[in-house]
């Protein structure tokens, strides 16, 4: 019991340390760099439009522009050599009335898309950790 606790805490501490030391592009590489992210975001956006809980938000959206912007955003966040030039999250989602439930639905769709690309669960969570705190700007309902 105690040994397991220590192991878990140690794993956690090491995880922290490696996350900090990789102020680099290891996550970007884990997602297959720009090419991998482009494929992932293409699939993700298709899934968002197909998903009943999220499709209404994308009715009037230029989907190819959305894919490009999402790719740039995740590329930049994960340490890749990209620059996201779109609007900030707050103004981009203003007036869309996204609730927490819909935000969670989007997270689920992203998890499905990452699963489909066989991205390791630990890497999925590292990426989600960079995105999840955006809920404060995106959820307005």
């Amino acid at each position: 019991m105690t040994r397991l606790l220590i192991t878990l805490l140690l794993a956690f501490t090491l995880g922290q340390a490696s996350a900090q030391s990789t102020g680099n592009d290891s996550l970007y590489k884990a997602f297959g760099e720009k090419a991998g992210l482009t494929l992932l975001m293409d699939d993700f956006v298709q899934r968002l439009v197909a998903e009943p809980r999220t499709q209404a938000f994308f009715k009037n959206t230029d989907l190819s522009r959305l894919k490009t912007q999402l790719t740039d955003q995740l590329c930049m966040l994960s340490g890749g050599p990209c620059k996201y030039t779109g609007r900030d999250m707050k103004s981009a989602h203003m007036g869309m009335a996204v609730g927490k439930s819909e935000f969670n639905a989007l997270v689920e769709v992203l998890q499905e898309a990452m699963d489909a690309k066989n991205i390791a669960f630990t890497d999925q969570n590292r990426m989600l950790a960079l995105l999840a705190s955006m809920h404060r700007d995106i959820i307005t309902k």
Binding site: F12, Q16, A19, T122, N125, R126, A129, L130, A132
Partner: peptide, 12 residues
């Protein structure tokens, strides 16, 4: 009183 935290990047 309880405090709960998901350390998402570490899956903990």
């Amino acid at each position: 009183v309880s405090a709960t935290k998901l350390l998402l990047a570490q899956s903990v």
